[in-house]
Simulated assay, not measured.
Amino acid sequence: MTTCEDPFVVLGVAQEASREDIRSAYRRLAMRWHPDRNPSPAAAAEFKRLHAAYELLLDDERLAAWRAACHGAAADGAAVGDDLVQSLTLTLEQAAAGCHRTVELLHRVRCSSCAGSGRVQHSHSVPCPACSGCGRVVRTGGRTARCDTCGGHGYLRETACTNCAGSGWRNEPRTLEVTVPPALVGGERLRLARQAPLSPGDERRVAGDLYLEINLAAHELFVLDGLDLHCRVPVSIFRLLCGGRIEVPTLNGTTWIELPPWSPTAGDHRLAGLGFPGKGERAAGDLVLHPQGVQPQLAAREDCQLLELLDWRLAADLEQRAPLLADWQQQLRARREGPVV
């Protein structure tokens, strides 16, 4: 863990977390990253970071000193590395309720194999990688010439480090456990102080801030408009006509609503406060339901008898209950009884 790396971010706990919360987070992450359980090459380093953060958070004196050191470095005008903005995609449920997420980063660190030099000294001569030990290389036109890498000797006592391709630096994975607070909408940013990766040559700088920009994934049921959630609800045509109780989805599960009998002026159903949650002075949105009538594709024989009765009852009062059908019947009657011009 670097000098100003935030131990709260490393363990994914809030600044006001209790000691029990800290212990619980450490146990959970230690089980995941312990080298005896995790074969990843990064597991040992990550486990050390977790343990260092855990010990720091449980030692009040060291924690106070850490805070003073980080604040002092910023106050003294120490050079600060670049900030980084990275996208974090959440489901509507995760964004509404808050969640714990894992963020993967790549840090540039000095190569331990060559101590950052990019070169490796060998105890005995090894074949030159450029000419495979023959001392000559093929040039344009098929001619051969002396190998510039080994000076024509064919063997070297020093070669470029293969672990960092001679750069002296390599990418090392790093994992952050992030606590996402509730009610973050798309486009908002979550700031993780001093968690941005440092670039080569910046090891003496204070790390910049990492900003996680919230992106909301498309949802199979809901469409977010502002803070209102819109949902199309398939409903049997019979239930839609008669009204009655139906079950509808919410961000927290389901609820029941009472549909009134259908009428030509019937519109959508708005459930106040059941949309995306509010935050601070921002009020919660509404859940807007759009009932969609579904007709059965098949009718059983018993159903047909009931439907025939309903059709007969409807025909007795078409002008009031089905004016479009009444107008159609009038046009047919006119064509049947009078000449067609």
Score class of each variant (00 low, 15 high):
residue 236 S to C: 15
residue 122 H to F: 11
residue 319 E to S: 10
residue 253 G to F: 03
residue 79 A to P: 04
residue 276 F to P: 02
residue 63 L to T: 03
residue 158 E to N: 06
residue 1 M to A: 13
residue 252 N to K: 12
residue 294 V to C: 09
residue 34 H to P: 06
residue 88 L to S: 04
residue 114 C to R: 05
residue 231 C to H: 05
residue 236 S to P: 01
residue 28 R to I: 01
residue 282 R to G: 00
residue 44 A to F: 10
residue 21 D to M: 08
residue 247 E to D: 10
residue 64 A to E: 14
residue 50 L to G: 02
residue 313 R to G: 15
residue 12 G to E: 01
residue 326 A to M: 04
residue 280 G to D: 04
residue 126 V to R: 12
residue 291 P to I: 03
residue 164 C to E: 07
residue 182 P to Q: 11
residue 73 A to R: 14
residue 243 G to Y: 02
residue 265 T to K: 09
residue 150 C to Q: 03
residue 54 Y to P: 00
residue 26 Y to P: 00
residue 12 G to V: 05
residue 49 R to K: 07
residue 186 G to Q: 14
residue 16 E to L: 07
residue 153 H to Y: 10
residue 234 P to T: 10
residue 281 E to T: 14
residue 306 L to E: 10
residue 242 C to S: 14
residue 75 A to V: 04
residue 316 A to W: 08
residue 105 L to K: 00
residue 93 E to A: 15
residue 278 G to T: 04
residue 57 L to K: 01
residue 226 G to P: 09
residue 262 W to P: 05
residue 85 V to L: 09
residue 204 R to G: 15
residue 237 I to D: 10
residue 47 F to W: 14
residue 65 A to F: 09
residue 164 C to Y: 02
residue 199 S to R: 14
residue 183 A to K: 03
residue 108 R to K: 10
residue 186 G to S: 13
residue 170 R to W: 04
residue 185 V to K: 11
residue 133 G to D: 08
residue 63 L to I: 00
residue 323 P to I: 05
residue 105 L to M: 05
residue 27 R to Q: 13
residue 320 Q to N: 14
residue 194 R to V: 01
residue 90 L to D: 07
residue 162 T to M: 06
residue 12 G to Q: 03
residue 300 A to S: 13
residue 164 C to T: 04
residue 239 R to K: 14
residue 57 L to G: 00
residue 170 R to T: 06
residue 339 P to N: 10
residue 84 L to V: 15
residue 313 R to Y: 12
residue 141 G to E: 09
residue 165 A to R: 15
residue 43 A to E: 04
residue 212 L to T: 03
residue 183 A to G: 07
residue 66 W to L: 06
residue 99 C to H: 05
residue 320 Q to P: 00
residue 158 E to A: 07
residue 33 W to I: 01
residue 123 S to Y: 05
residue 230 H to L: 14
residue 277 P to Q: 05
residue 91 T to W: 02
residue 294 V to Q: 14
residue 73 A to I: 02
residue 226 G to T: 11
residue 174 R to H: 13
residue 117 S to M: 02
residue 23 R to F: 09
residue 304 C to I: 14
residue 148 D to K: 13
residue 234 P to V: 09
residue 301 R to V: 12
residue 183 A to H: 07
residue 68 A to W: 08
residue 178 V to W: 00
residue 179 T to M: 11
residue 63 L to E: 07
residue 315 A to C: 11
residue 222 F to K: 04
residue 105 L to T: 03
residue 256 W to I: 08
residue 163 N to L: 12
residue 167 S to M: 05
residue 220 E to D: 14
residue 206 V to W: 06
residue 233 V to H: 03
residue 29 L to E: 04
residue 166 G to M: 03
residue 208 G to P: 05
residue 227 L to Y: 07
residue 189 R to E: 15
residue 236 S to Y: 05
residue 145 A to Q: 14
residue 308 E to L: 12
residue 216 L to V: 05
residue 218 A to M: 05
residue 183 A to P: 01
residue 167 S to G: 04
residue 308 E to M: 12
residue 234 P to R: 07
residue 216 L to N: 07
residue 221 L to V: 11
residue 135 G to K: 04
residue 33 W to S: 01
residue 283 A to W: 01
residue 34 H to T: 02
residue 286 D to N: 11
residue 115 A to F: 12
residue 227 L to R: 15
residue 97 A to T: 11
residue 78 A to G: 12
residue 109 V to E: 15
residue 131 C to Q: 02
residue 59 D to R: 07
residue 3 T to P: 00
residue 124 H to N: 11
residue 26 Y to I: 02
residue 195 Q to L: 00
residue 6 D to S: 10
residue 189 R to D: 10
